[in-house]
């Protein structure tokens, strides 16, 4: 992995809202082919962190660089060519077909009317093929299950052809099968497309098994490391009160404390 050229680098970053600091002094860099989970308890600042690095929320201080360019100097259209996003529980027009949703991912590249050229159509087809939803292309979104919809929106992000894909809790509302499916899909995509994929999640056990790196946000601090190192550092044990949930190093998973 080329450690020299991170796709995204963050230095001494403070995130939060005008009157509220969420986390401070975050420094990390993200490279291509990495699958990275952002974990932390509710309200720790996972979404705030993701919103800040996608330019949706102004940073409080510090530095964010995408491909060595300062984030605040990029226009929203330029950012859209570097980062695509998959939101959780977005309200959208159910009347759109799968193809139309994926094709909207070409938005940063299309002309003033938004018409698709041959290259755009190719990118859409390729995204559909990668996610294996070509047979759904002409279906309307209101005919799809939650799991299928999530695939469609991941395909849309792929069609945007960005170096980074950011997902906000992509396994929300999904059953265990689809949760594991989406995790594996993201892993496969990060390997195959060489993109950096960053996502917030509450599925700690799955994240520890599959991710290359984990960003742990806890008590206003953010740590980035591989799952193995995080387990060794015993930092995971501090995430939850131990009388309720404990981390079991042997099975590398969180367990409910059943002692009463």
């Amino acid at each position: 992995m080329n450690k020299k050229n991170p796709i995204l680098s963050v230095k001494n970053l403070n995130i939060g809202y005008p009157n509220k600091l969420i986390a401070n002094n975050i420094s990390l860099s993200i490279h291509k082919k990495e699958l990275i989970a952002v974990i932390g308890i509710n309200g720790a600042g996972k979404s705030t962190f993701l919103k800040t690095i996608t330019g949706d929320l102004p940073k409080k201080s510090g530095e964010i660089k995408i491909q060595n360019q300062a984030l605040q100097q990029l226009s929203s259209k330029e950012i859209a060519a570097y980062i695509s996003v998959v939101f959780s529980n977005a309200v959208f027009s159910q009347n759109l077909s799968v193809y139309e949703v994926v094709a909207l991912g070409r938005n940063p590249y299309t002309n003033w009317l938004g018409l698709l050229n041959e290259e755009d159509k190719k990118a859409v087809q390729q995204a559909l093929r990668l996610i294996e939803i070509e047979d759904l292309a002409n279906k309307k979104c209101n005919q799809l299950s939650d799991g299928q919809l999530q695939k469609v929106f991941i395909a849309r992000a792929l069609a945007q052809e960005t170096d980074i894909i950011v997902l906000d809790e992509p396994t929300n509302h999904l059953d265990l099968y689809h949760k594991a499916f989406v995790f594996k899909l993201l892993k496969k995509l990060s390997q195959k497309t060489e993109k950096a994929i960053i996502f917030a999640t509450h599925e700690l056990n799955l994240a520890l098994q599959l991710c290359d790196k984990i960003i742990l946000i806890n008590n206003e601090k953010a740590v980035i490391d591989s799952p193995e190192n995080l387990i060794k550092s015993k930092i995971l044990q501090q995430l939850f009160p131990s009388d309720l949930i404990q981390f079991d190093e042997l099975t590398k998973s969180f367990k409910v404390n059943t002692d009463f």
């Binding site: 330029e78 950012i79 859209a80 060519a81 996003v85 939101f87 909207l104 009317l113």
Partner: peptide, 24 residues
């Protein structure tokens, strides 16, 4: 109206998505 058609289409996915696709 013609000049807003593209962004109206993007808005079908909601304001968050429209913004993430570079719509001002």
């Amino acid at each position: 109206c013609l000049f807003s058609l593209k962004s109206l289409n993007a808005l079908l996915l909601g304001e968050n998505y429209a913004k993430s696709m570079g719509i001002q």
